[in-house]
Amino acid sequence: MRYVNRILFLIISFFLLNLAQAAGRGRPAPQGSGGGDKSSRLGRPWSIGLGQDNINILLPVGKKWAYQGRLGGVSASSGNGVYYLGSSLRRYFPKTPILDFYLSPDINISHFDVDQAKGLGAALGATVGIEYRLRPRLGLSFDIGPYWIYLRNFEPAITRQSWEWIVNTNIHFYIR
């Protein structure tokens, strides 16, 4: 499973790099977009999305800002697994009419029940990513960044913290 993820990562990387390069070569801007006005498609509609391990909603909160709320979970071989609630704020840096870069601080709180460990946790991070609009109502985003993960077991009350690199990928379905 670990290698499936890594191969998937390579495929997505390759795909996005191709898209980025194609977009950078000057794909014609949609008519009425104002030609060089890169931010003309911002103030985007809201979307629901699917991530690797979550469902999410992306709400515009400004011309170049969007809030993402997530509800996610993964199973465990023993125990109920991990459930988490996440919030992030995306600051977009428009590149082309179909491609945006973004920065995103990210906060997650979690309940975990994995093998002998059961408790609450948090993951705080900041990512850098790109979002590509495949279709007018379909977007693909991909970001990566360092996260500080803190877990506290209920009983015994022992804790664990670490820094981890995390990749997030999402498919966004824009509603209107």
Binding site: F9, V74, G86, S110, V114, A117, Y147, I166
Partner: peptide, 14 residues
């Protein structure tokens, strides 16, 4: 790398 926050937390919980 971890693919998704949930997987990263699970890994640390393990």
């Amino acid at each position: 790398l971890h693919f998704g926050v949930g997987r990263a937390i699970r890994s640390q919980a393990q």
